[in-house]
Amino acid sequence: MAQARKRRLRLSAIIGTVPMMIVAIGVYVIGIAFTVFWSFTDSKLFPNSTLVGFKQYHRLWQDDRWLVAVQNIWIFGILLMVFALAFGFLLAVFMDQEIRQEDLLRSIYLYPFAMSLIVTGLVWQWMLDPNFGIEHTVRSLGWANFQFSPLVDPNTAIYGLVVAGIWQGSGVTMAILLAGLRGIDAEIWKAARIDGIPIWRVYIFIVIPMMRGSIGTAFVLIAVGVVRVYDLVVAMTGGGPGISTNMPAVYVIDMITKSYNVGQGMAAATIMLLPVIAVIALIGLGRIVSTRRKNAAILRAEATA
């Protein structure tokens, strides 16, 4: 009787989570399996199942657009990571000095993150407009050789995207790092002062290592944003001039919706999945190693006790 009731109750839990099962299996197992499968076919406008081996991958790595896209995501990703983390950290440290109007400043630094990347892209497109934007304004003030219109030149357009990315993302980084700073024991500062350690050394050698958690969070947030960057490119440059600001995310969507080359798009999508799997594997490995170490430490402690 009790057994049957228990089973019935567990059945409601299973029924309640049917949508979760469908999404978990349907999208993240079957969906990904189809993407990988189609990457080995010669699907064009519609998917088919004519296997062609690694041909799509071979062609992908000979496609200039894809090569530019891969190069761009490194440039964009590394620059954004360095600048957003450095700028966000400086802001967080300065915000942590018992300053006035902290809430107001925080709202100002953070509001760009609330807006769509389409909005961010369009604003910066306008600010960087060669005819009416910052460049024109500064020149009309007297600096005739001032140059700040990266978007018109294929060699510099990607840096325009980086500027917009920093504007959008530094505030969030600040908020996360500030929360990390506030979580650190105040005794550290007293101890450091008593020992006469300069403040900057305390930050670099004590505080930053203690903020691993929040720095990691900010890192993941920026990294996920970088891999997904699509809206910003579409709004700001449309991938141009020429092919100069293509990104993998843009490349995949264009292959599906514009070039009708599903096979190659799926090959590109599969490649986008690889770094994610690598990172997850690394995290998993790190966890295993750290639990092993912890266990070893416990054993040692027990042995000495």
């Binding site: 989570t17 189809f34 993407t35 891999v227 997904r228 995310a249 994610v276």
Partner: peptide, 25 residues
Amino acid sequence: ANLFFGLLVFGAFVPYQVVIYPLII
């Protein structure tokens, strides 16, 4: 249940482009 949850956590990191086309179909 934890298997489904693990898949969802994994899904939080998967770029949308990886699953978008199967969803369209």
